[in-house]
Simulated scan of single mutants.
Amino acid sequence: MRISRDKQGLFNDLKQRYQYLLDSSYPDEIVSFEEETGMWSDDFYEFFTLVTGSLSLVIDHKRIPKKQLNVLRQSFEEQYPQIKSCQQILESYPLLHSYVQYHEETRKRIIALIQ
Rank of each mutant, 00 (worst) to 15 (best):
27 P>W: 02
33 F>L: 03
59 I>E: 04
96 L>R: 01
11 F>A: 02
91 E>G: 03
39 M>W: 06
113 L>N: 04
6 D>R: 15
71 V>N: 03
115 Q>D: 14
1 M>K: 13
61 H>I: 01
1 M>C: 10
6 D>V: 10
34 E>Y: 03
48 F>R: 03
74 Q>W: 03
4 S>A: 13
39 M>S: 04
18 Y>G: 06
6 D>I: 13
97 H>L: 00
66 K>F: 12
80 Y>R: 05
35 E>I: 10
109 R>S: 09
100 V>N: 06
34 E>A: 08
45 Y>W: 10
110 I>T: 06
22 L>Y: 08
40 W>S: 15
97 H>D: 06
13 D>L: 15
15 K>G: 02
89 I>Q: 07
86 C>T: 05
102 Y>V: 04
45 Y>F: 15
4 S>W: 06
66 K>S: 14
16 Q>S: 13
46 E>Y: 07
48 F>G: 02
63 R>S: 14
47 F>W: 00
56 S>A: 15
18 Y>L: 11
2 R>L: 11
105 E>V: 08
60 D>C: 11
55 L>A: 04
39 M>E: 09
111 I>R: 00
14 L>A: 01
80 Y>H: 11
89 I>C: 09
39 M>V: 15
42 D>H: 14
20 Y>I: 08
96 L>N: 06
73 R>V: 07
101 Q>M: 14
11 F>H: 07
65 P>M: 09
26 Y>K: 08
97 H>E: 07
72 L>T: 05
112 A>M: 12
6 D>S: 13
91 E>N: 09
13 D>E: 15
63 R>M: 11
81 P>E: 03
60 D>Y: 02
96 L>A: 00
48 F>C: 06
1 M>G: 10
6 D>W: 06
77 E>L: 15
16 Q>P: 00
88 Q>P: 02
63 R>K: 14
26 Y>G: 00
86 C>Q: 14
16 Q>D: 14
91 E>R: 14
70 N>I: 11
111 I>Q: 01
78 E>F: 03
3 I>Q: 00
72 L>P: 02
101 Q>Y: 09
114 I>S: 02
39 M>F: 11
114 I>Q: 05
74 Q>T: 07
26 Y>T: 03
1 M>R: 12
108 K>P: 01
113 L>K: 07
13 D>C: 05
66 K>G: 04
83 I>E: 00
40 W>C: 08
68 Q>S: 10
4 S>R: 13
102 Y>W: 05
70 N>M: 12
83 I>K: 02
33 F>S: 01
23 D>C: 08
42 D>N: 13
85 S>Q: 14
77 E>Q: 13
55 L>W: 01
107 R>W: 00
106 T>F: 00
51 V>S: 03
49 T>F: 10
32 S>E: 11
60 D>G: 04
45 Y>S: 12
54 S>W: 00
90 L>E: 00
32 S>A: 15
107 R>L: 07
19 Q>I: 12
64 I>P: 02
98 S>F: 07
81 P>D: 06
64 I>G: 01
7 K>Q: 08
65 P>D: 09
69 L>V: 01
83 I>W: 04
19 Q>Y: 10
40 W>E: 14
80 Y>K: 02
69 L>D: 03
98 S>Q: 15
45 Y>V: 11
18 Y>P: 01
96 L>P: 04
74 Q>N: 15
55 L>C: 06
52 T>W: 05
75 S>M: 05
